[in-house]
Write a protein that binds this DNA or RNA. Structure first.
Lengths: 137, 137
DNA sequence: TTGCTATTACGAAAACTTTCGTATATGTTT
DNA sequence: AAACATATACGAAAGTTTTCGTAATAGCAA
């Protein structure tokens, strides 16, 4: 179920994965248009990267029609988890707590969001009472 | 006070900054030794990167004695904040909440840590009542 | 068919990062 | 002084990622 190789997409590759995760399977043209909402990227550049991603197994594609349709071949959740792990290691010396604190400390966390987190924590705490039961759902 | 250019250290540069932040001003030899606790890196490699960092303004150095003493020229807090921003943007589409949730969701958050976060949230909520006052200390 | 547009494929250049060999200089020890 | 160990400086190579020019192909319209 889990990916064999933890998948370490580059920054550009990640941008593309974001588009695919958000929009579902897309043609290269669509992906490129989406990217260009944020920054200028040439069409063949996007195409090339997506072809490289195909080789790495980060995406798959349907070539039955002329315009190939690409889809993400790695899950958003797992990829995020991997990247988060790496990031916490390199930037917060492995302390996820430090990172959460810093994220919360950034002045722009609304009261609503804080409430949301509190609720989430409550949920986790409730689950911890039943550790023997699988909570990996 | 804030850095002019948000400072985007590479991964190696970040490793070196971590050492400098943790140990205070260091000679290249010291930094290299520290790095080698985690992975093998040649001395001149570390030296070279630190010299490049000097050009970029990421570190400063005291050359009064033969062994130059380097120190971080960017603050840990600000750098972390910058990197965190970037990371949240690229990996969590800008949603710090999503990231915090994912971090907390990773099964290995202890009850103590959750309590810590709750306390921290309480502190933030208290501060939000006095938004006019600077909470940037 | 002919010409126009959109797409894929491919390779190479450009940009960036990391690594290391080597020259040179400076202390230290014998 | 001479030999040795250690430090800096520098440049080039190797590795990785991104960018883009160009060719080949397929679909479509006139």
């Amino acid at each position: 179920m889990a990916n064999q190789h933890p998948a370490k997409p580059t920054e550009s590759e990640l941008e593309i994965l974001q588009v695919l995760w958000a929009n579902g399977p897309c043609a290269v043209r669509t992906v490129n248009d989406q990217l260009n909402l944020q920054r200028e990227v040439g069409y063949t550049t996007t195409l090339k990267i997506m072809q490289l991603m195909l080789n790495k197994g980060l995406v798959a594609r349907d070539t039955s029609s002329r315009t190939h349709i690409y889809r993400a071949a790695v899950s958003e959740k797992e990829t995020r988890a991997n990247l988060l792990d790496r990031f916490v290691d390199t930037t917060f010396r492995g302390s996820a707590m430090d990172m959460v604190m810093q994220a919360l400390g950034n002045k722009d966390t609304s009261a609503e969001e804080l409430a949301e987190i509190k609720a989430f924590i409550k949920k986790i705490e409730a689950e911890e009472c039943f550790e023997a039961v699988s909570i990996d759902y």
